[in-house]
Each structure stands twice: as structure tokens, then as C-alpha cells.
Computed example of a mutant assay.
Amino acid sequence: MLEYQAAKDLLKGKTILVTGAGDGIGRAAALAYAEHGATVILLGKTVSKLESVYDEIEQAGYPTPAIVPLDLKGATEQHYIDMAETIEQQFGHLDGLLHNASLLGVLGPFEHISIDSVKEVMQVNLIAEIIMTKALLPVLKKAPLASLIFTSSSVGRQGRAFWGEYAISKFATEGMMQSIAHEYQGTNLRANSINPGATRTKMRANAYPAENPQTLKTPEELMPTYLYLMGDDSKDITGQQLNAQ
């Protein structure tokens, strides 16, 4: 799978929503999905970044994307309901959803955890994902084959000292993925998680400021796994915890 070679038209005719699409892994995934034929819905909080990705997709001659400016920290359930209705009206269904947006929170001893920071991390990494997924499930179920991808972490599968806030949010993400995968087993909807691993992103730099980023893989180098799970070649894979490295 790490060496997966996606067919050029793997995602032709599909509509895929990517959260945190303005930079990092989300940007790379949006570009990769568009390159392989998908109409990508770019969701993020910074409009200028989304517009930059939009322009890059347009200039490359890929299918025209759409932009949804949304701050996951402040969005209400009604925002997600309205978004789902708009997607259904414009596209008829949704073929894929990549939950990529996440907050790192504060790294440090558990006894020093700030409850305000925990609430913020859980809002973006968990609550927003729950509400968005709930709103979009009816639109995903209308697709011939739909793929739901959650972004996990190594610390969401094995806890680590000083990573409490982030680790707990990602353990919860894994639980959500498994619950949905089990609930929809045998249907047109599959759910899986990806652990990107150490990647050259801003979040990684914040977590490991002394690390040489040139020693890390770029987001673009992780795309075989992201393409595999989003395309129909993985139609029988559900409830799995995959690694992109």
C-alpha cells in the first residue's frame, strides 16, 4: 500500500470533502485527489490558504473545486447541517470525507493540563468531527461507494508521556472510526483511519522544534495511502488502522 500506484482516473467523477485543506497534509491530499479526477471541497478556517489551493487546482486543469470557509472551533451543528444540504443540492451525494484538521494542544505533564486547552482540542479533533460526520452521513450513503477517513496518530494508538490532550482526542477518534465501520459494515460506506507518521508539517515543527524537518517525509510522499483509501480499490477495507509510512 505504501507503494500503491493510483490510476490517473482513480477518483474521476467523485466529490470529496477535505478538512484542513489549506496547508500540510490536507493541501497535499486535496491536490492529489483533484489530480486523480475528483471535485474537491476545500474546508478550512483561513480563506486565503483555501483560495491558494483552489487556484493551484484550477491552474493545473483539474476539476473545479469548491471552498467552504469554516472554523471548527466555533461552528454550530446548524452550520454542518446547512453544509450537508448544500453539498447534496449541488452534487447529489458525497463520495469521500477526509477528516484532516486537528489541533495539537499543549504538550506537558498531565497534572499541568489546562482544561480550556483540552476543551479546544476536543472541540476541533473530536466534537466537530462527530457533528460533521453525523450531518454528512446521509449524503455519503447516497454515493455508490463512500469512503470516510479519519486522521489518527501513533499517540492515538499507544499513549505517550506529555501528549495527554492530543493522545486522548486521537484515541477517541479511533473509537469513532471503529464504531462507524462496524455500524455500516456490509454497506456502501467504509471508515478507516490513517496515522501519517512523522511528516514535514507546521504541527510537527511545533511539537519537535529542534528536529531537522529535512529528515522527515513530505505530505506529498504520504499520498499513496490517502489515494488508496479514498479510491474504489479499497472498497472492501473498513475498520482498519493504516499507517502512511
Rank of each mutant, 00 (worst) to 15 (best):
151 T>D: 07
86 T>D: 09
20 G>T: 06
71 D>S: 13
150 F>D: 03
195 N>I: 15
104 L>A: 10
227 L>I: 14
70 L>V: 11
12 K>S: 13
74 G>Y: 04
102 S>H: 09
122 M>C: 10
32 A>I: 02
29 A>G: 03
130 I>P: 00
120 E>W: 03
210 A>F: 11
173 T>R: 05
89 Q>L: 14
165 E>T: 15
177 M>V: 12
76 T>W: 05
176 M>R: 04
14 K>N: 06
216 L>T: 11
77 E>N: 10
30 A>N: 06
218 T>W: 02
77 E>S: 13
223 M>A: 12
184 Y>K: 01
206 N>A: 15
149 I>S: 04
228 Y>R: 10
47 V>R: 13
95 D>V: 01
16 I>F: 02
12 K>F: 04
115 I>A: 05
8 K>M: 10
114 S>G: 05
190 R>P: 02
195 N>P: 05
26 G>T: 01
39 T>M: 10
182 H>T: 15
236 D>M: 13
28 A>L: 03
64 T>L: 13
114 S>Q: 04
93 H>A: 13
79 H>L: 10
49 K>F: 11
52 S>G: 12
60 A>R: 04
224 P>F: 09
9 D>Q: 07
130 I>F: 14
176 M>W: 07
109 P>M: 08
71 D>R: 06
237 I>M: 08
77 E>I: 08
195 N>W: 09
178 Q>C: 13
150 F>Q: 02
74 G>P: 05
72 L>N: 03
216 L>Y: 04
233 D>F: 02
202 K>W: 11
47 V>E: 13
37 G>W: 00
99 H>P: 00
75 A>L: 08
225 T>W: 07
24 G>N: 05
183 E>S: 09
205 A>C: 11
233 D>V: 11
165 E>A: 15
137 L>H: 04
40 V>K: 00
207 A>C: 05
19 T>I: 04
230 M>E: 06
106 V>C: 08
54 Y>E: 14
51 E>Y: 06
161 A>Q: 14
170 K>G: 10
28 A>K: 03
76 T>H: 08
167 A>R: 02
170 K>M: 15
51 E>Q: 13
6 A>T: 04
154 S>Q: 14
108 G>E: 10
230 M>R: 00
102 S>K: 09
8 K>P: 00
7 A>I: 05
131 I>R: 12
19 T>R: 00
245 Q>Y: 10
54 Y>P: 00
148 L>K: 01
94 L>M: 06
5 Q>L: 13
60 A>T: 08
215 T>L: 14
71 D>E: 11
53 V>K: 03
105 G>W: 04
6 A>E: 01
94 L>D: 00
222 L>C: 12
125 N>G: 04
236 D>N: 14
129 E>G: 14
56 E>A: 13
122 M>V: 11
4 Y>L: 08
195 N>C: 15
139 V>E: 00
156 G>L: 13
136 L>S: 06
180 I>V: 12
50 L>D: 01
88 E>Y: 03
6 A>M: 07
171 F>A: 11
180 I>Y: 01
17 L>Q: 01
157 R>W: 13
124 V>E: 01
217 K>V: 14
191 A>P: 02
210 A>I: 12
219 P>L: 12
